[in-house]
C-alpha cells in the first residue's frame, strides 16, 4: 500500500520536467514509446500539457441495500479508473473519514453511496481534497443484472458522454456537468482502458433530475472496421444498464463538507414524504371522528319539531 503511493508520488513529480525534455528530444511520438515510459503526456496545440489522472474512490455506507450495492458494483465495472473500498460507517464524522480514505488511496474524487433506513440512497459526488461535493438523492434504480437490459460491451472501453444542452444553463448545472465529465469519463490512455468506444452514457436533465442511461453501440451486419456513412444510419443502441435518476440536493464548497453553495429549492426529503403520507392516513380517522361529533352537535342544536301526528293512533 505504502509502496504504491510512493511510486505514484515519484511518478508525479518528474512529469513536468520529463515532458519538457521529451518535447525537445523526440520529434516523433509513438503510442508504444510513451507507454514504456509510463507517462503519456499529450501536447496541446498551443503547448500546454494536460493529462487526466482522475482516480475515483467508490464506496458505500454500511447497511446498504443489496439493490443499491449492486448499482455501486455496476458503476465500478463501468469505471475502470475507480478504486472500490470497504464500507464506511455513515456517521456525522464520515466526511473526515472519507477524506482521509480518499487521500490514502491517492484518489482525486469520490463516489459515496449512502443508504439510509434501507430504502433511501444518497450519492455523494466529491472532488478531493478541496473540490466541491454534491449530494444527490438516487431514484428509479435499475441494475445491470436485470434481464430486460440486453446489451453488453467491453469492460473498460471509454464511454462517450452525451449531455442534454440544458446542462449549460445555470451555474450549478454547469458545475455538475463538469464533475460528471471528470468522474464518469475514463481518462485517455488509462492503462485499464481499451482503445475502442462501444458504449455511450446519457445524462439528461428532465424535471430537474439527472437521468442516467448506458447504451451499447452496435452496428449490425457490417465488418465494424469499415463502417461508412451508410452504416451510420444503421447504428443501433442496446441498453446495458444500470439506470438511475439523480436529484441534486446540495452542493458544498469543500469535499464532504464546507459552505453550502447551492440548495435545491424543490427538494423534499423522503423522510418528510413518508411522514406526510402517514399523517394523511392518520388524518382520515380524525376527520371521521370530527364529522361525527359535528353531526351530533348539529342535531343537538337543531332538534326536530315534535310530530303532530305522532300519537294519532294511540288515542283509539
Amino acid at each position: 500500500m505504502g509502496k504504491k503511493r510512493k511510486h505514484a508520488e515519484v511518478v508525479a513529480v518528474p512529469i513536468v520536467k520529463k515532458d519538457e525534455i521529451d518535447s525537445l528530444e523526440r520529434p516523433q511520438r509513438t503510442l508504444f514509446g510513451w507507454k514504456d515510459k509510463n507517462v503519456e503526456p499529450e501536447k496541446q496545440t498551443d503547448g500546454t500539457i494536460f493529462r487526466n489522472k482522475e482516480k475515483v474512490l467508490v464506496t458505500c455506507s454500511r447497511r446498504i441495500n443489496f439493490r443499491y450495492r449492486h448499482l455501486m458494483l455496476n458503476l465500478v465495472s463501468l469505471l475502470p479508473h475507480c478504486k472500490k473500498d470497504n464500507k464506511v460507517e455513515s456517521k456525522t464524522t464520515k466526511g473526515a473519514t472519507l477524506n482521509e480514505l480518499v487521500e490514502l488511496k491517492s484518489c482525486s474524487s469520490c463516489l459515496f453511496f449512502e443508504c439510509r433506513k434501507h430504502k433511501d440512497l444518497y450519492l455523494w459526488m466529491a472532488k478531493c481534497p478541496n473540490g466541491p461535493s454534491i449530494k444527490f438523492l438516487v431514484d428509479a434504480v435499475h441494475t445491470m443484472e436485470e434481464l430486460k437490459l440486453t446489451g453488453n460491451h467491453l469492460n473498460g472501453s471509454r464511454p462517450l458522454l452525451t449531455f442534454s444542452t440544458n446542462f449549460d444553463g445555470n451555474p450549478h448545472w454547469k458545475l455538475i456537468k463538469e464533475m460528471i465529465t471528470q468522474i464518469f469519463g475514463t481518462p485517455k490512455d488509462h492503462r485499464k482502458s481499451k482503445p475502442f468506444h462501444d458504449h455511450v452514457f446519457v445524462f439528461s436533465i428532465a424535471d430537474d433530475h439527472i437521468w442516467f442511461r448506458n447504451y451499447q453501440i452496435s452496428c449490425p451486419h457490417t465488418g465494424v472496421d469499415k463502417i461508412d456513412r451508410g452504416g451510420l444510419d444503421k447504428l443501433t443502441l442496446i441498453e446495458v444498464g444500470p439506470r438511475f435518476c439523480l436529484n441534486p440536493i446540495k452542493i458544498f464548497g469543500g469535499s464532504f463538507g464546507g459552505p453550502t453553495l447551492y440548495e435545491n429549492p424543490y427538494y423534499v426529503a423522503p423522510n418528510q414524504v413518508r411522514a406526510l403520507e402517514k399523517r394523511q392516513k392518520a388524518g382520515k380517522y380524525a376527520k371521521k371522528v370530527k364529522a361525527k361529533t359535528r353531526r351530533k352537535m348539529h342535531e343537538l342544536s337543531n332538534p326536530l319539531e315534535p310530530d303532530e301526528f305522532a300519537d294519532m293512533w294511540k288515542e283509539e
Binding site: 500546454t48 494536460f50 473540490g131 471509454r158 464533475m179
Partner: peptide, 21 residues
C-alpha cells in the same frame, strides 16, 4: 468552484469525449 476544478479550456475533445445534444 467550477473554475477551480475544470480542465484547461483547450483540452482536446479526446480527453472529454463529451457531446452536447
Amino acid at each position: 468552484k467550477l473554475g477551480d476544478i475544470s480542465w484547461p479550456e483547450d483540452v482536446g475533445w479526446l480527453h472529454k469525449l463529451s457531446i452536447d445534444i
